[in-house]
Amino acid sequence: MARAATTTDAFNAVAEPRRRQILDLLRAGERPVNELVELLDLAQPQVSKHLRVLREVDLVHVRDEGRQRLYRLNPGPLRPIHDWLRAYEQLWNERFDLMDDVLDDLGKAESDDDGDD
């Protein structure tokens, strides 16, 4: 099956680690592209390519201020990802609870072993 284009939805767009890094940087607020280039240690054309994909799925908005283009996060399109992951949260919590039980049992067994000396 062919992979969906990265510009079809937020799921595909955030599958790329560099785009997630850009979103993380934009959580702190609006940033110019040259600052993103510096923080990511990537060439400007690469950052611009990632920003284009993020714009196409509406995850970032851009505005011109003089000669600069300022990018800001638009978190709305992330909601379907959040909702999808929420279904797995209960599973993760149950597994962590089981792991806590095992660790507690191991700790008790170790304490019992230490008391036998």
Rank of each mutant, 00 (worst) to 15 (best):
A15Y: 04
A43I: 07
P45S: 04
K108S: 05
D105R: 11
K108L: 08
R19M: 07
L25Q: 10
D105M: 07
E89Q: 14
V62D: 07
D97S: 12
P77I: 03
A4M: 11
A15L: 12
R31L: 15
V57W: 00
M99Q: 05
L39G: 02
F11Q: 06
R67F: 06
P32Q: 14
E110Y: 04
L103Y: 04
T6L: 15
P45H: 02
D24P: 01
Y71N: 03
L106F: 06
P80D: 05
R55W: 00
V102K: 05
H82G: 15
E65D: 13
W92H: 09
E89L: 15
H82I: 13
W92N: 10
L78A: 02
A109K: 10
L59H: 01
L54R: 00
R67V: 03
E89K: 15
A4S: 11
P17I: 03
P17M: 05
L98S: 08
V60I: 03
L59S: 00
L98Y: 07
R20I: 04
N74I: 04
T7K: 06
A87K: 13
P77A: 04
T8Y: 08
L25F: 13
L54W: 01
D97W: 13
T7V: 06
D83L: 08
D9M: 04
Q68T: 04
D9S: 13
A5M: 12
E89I: 05
R86S: 11
E56D: 12
F96W: 10
L91W: 10
Q68S: 03
G29W: 11
D83N: 12
L36H: 01
R3T: 14
P45L: 05
R55E: 08
